[in-house]
Amino acid sequence: MSAASSKEYGFLRANALSLAFGAVFVVTLGGQAISGTADFNAQQKANGLEPVSLLEYVTSSSFGVDVMENWQSEYLQFFLYIFATVWLVQRGSSESKKPGEEGTESDKEQKIGRHADEDSPKWAKTGDWRTVIFSRSLGLLMGALFLLTWVASSLVGWAAFNSEQLAERQDPVSWLGYLGEADFWNRSFQNWQSEMLAVGSMAVFSVYLRQRGSPESKPVGVAHAETGQTG
């Protein structure tokens, strides 16, 4: 069976993966907002304080820091994974290049400059600074998003930290002061560690385990020793 052309696929089916995850993202963010409000209000009650509304909660630093500390770790994960898989291999993994293919590969293999195809992206054909940037654009975007989300999480974490300091009648800290607080690093490390475990285990689990039909897996009958996306 040949692959269907884009004309046979409507907008929804052609973008099903991205749209489905986008929809689940919205639903789960809503779930976080509702359960977060309930959790926040349980603590307010325990401290003898007034409960807050859903709107007040989602415009609070308490909600913001819980969202952004998770975002930053996801983009760190993808940024590191995209770069690490250029240079490091895992023998037998569907997530890895074959041993011996480490590195950025030749212009011919990457179809850039004079090796570009007719339908190659414009910035792949030029062979100048545009190709240099385009060749790294996915990693650059993930790296930039990591830095931006990490800075955002530090700003909102700083505000949340200071409101807790004030509630406990302690002095607020400056933003730079917050970057040296255990709270900031605890929030960062607790998210980072889970991403590293998930990525490392996924890379090696895909050596011996299969998921029929998934591009994240080797075809079911392919040998364990076979590395790379063979099907």
């Binding site: 884009s6 913001g64 952004m68 975002w71 955002a152």
Partner: peptide
Amino acid sequence: MRGVRFVFAGYLLVIVLGIVYVSALGLMGR
């Protein structure tokens, strides 16, 4: 491929707006 561009731009917009919104919450000290 035209439709895919909208999904691409949509994701990027949501991420950037999220970053701006949460940063603003932090800077306003909410």
